[in-house]
Amino acid sequence: MADLTPEDVAKALERLPGWSGGTDRISRTVPCLPEGLLDRVHAAEEELDHHVVVEQGVGGTALVAWTHSRGCVTDRDVELALRINALLDHPGA
């Protein structure tokens, strides 16, 4: 697991439509989650042995990723965000 530099995070965000953030956290807010999506996100989390924080708010549901033990964004956070985007792009798959 590698900690990401500001440049690494900027490059990663170019591949992560809907996500924003910096070296401390990356996040994506989804106005309306498709039915069953969180169950599929949890399955992806288990596969990677890594987790996002899910925050319910007025503007929707925020999915926030960072590696708690490192206090920053790592390559594993980017991988999980990519998987979440794939799930959002194909909610029924």
Results as ranks from 00 to 15, higher is better:
P34S: 09
E35R: 14
A43T: 05
H51I: 04
E47S: 12
T29P: 01
Q56M: 12
R40V: 04
H42V: 15
D49F: 05
G57A: 10
G22L: 11
A44Q: 13
R25W: 10
V41Q: 05
V52N: 02
C32I: 10
P31F: 10
H50C: 01
I26G: 02
G57C: 05
V53S: 08
P34N: 12
V52D: 09
L38E: 09
E35C: 11
T29S: 08
E55W: 00
E55Q: 10
D49W: 10
L38K: 05
D24L: 14
S27R: 12
S27L: 08
V30E: 14
G22D: 15
L38I: 12
E35V: 15
L33R: 08
T29D: 06
D49G: 09
V54K: 02
S20W: 03
L38H: 05
A43Y: 06
R40T: 06
A43K: 11
E47Q: 14
T23N: 00
L48D: 12
E35N: 13
E35Q: 15
R25V: 15
P34D: 10
S27Y: 02
V41W: 09
H50L: 00
P34V: 11
A44L: 11
R40A: 07
P34M: 08
G21V: 02
A44F: 11
E47T: 14
V30S: 09
E45Q: 15
R25L: 13
L38Q: 12
R25F: 13
L38M: 08
A44T: 00
E47M: 04
E46M: 04
E45F: 03
G57F: 09
L48W: 05
C32T: 12
R25H: 07
A43R: 12
E47Y: 06
L48I: 07
G21S: 02
S27D: 04
E47I: 08
P31E: 06
T23G: 00
L33G: 10
D24P: 04
P34I: 03
G22M: 05
G57K: 08
L33M: 14
H51A: 06
D24K: 14
A44W: 01
A44C: 11
E47C: 07
D39G: 13
G36C: 13
T23R: 00
V30D: 07
G21I: 02
G57N: 06
V30G: 04
C32K: 13
E45A: 01
A44I: 02
G21T: 05
R40G: 07
T23P: 00
V52R: 00
V41P: 11
S20F: 06
E46Y: 00
G22W: 08
G22Q: 08
T29V: 13
A44M: 08
P31Q: 03
L48C: 12
H50E: 01
T23C: 00
R28A: 02
G57W: 06
A44Y: 06
T23S: 00
D39F: 11
D24C: 07
D24S: 15
L48T: 08
G21K: 06
P34Q: 10
P31M: 01
E46K: 15
E45V: 02
R28V: 02
L33N: 07
E46C: 01
R40H: 09
I26V: 14
V30T: 11
L37H: 00
G21H: 05
H50N: 07
E55M: 01
A44S: 15
I26K: 03
L33F: 03
D49L: 04
V54H: 04
S27T: 03
C32D: 14
C32E: 15
D49P: 00
P34A: 05
Q56T: 11
T29M: 04
H42W: 15
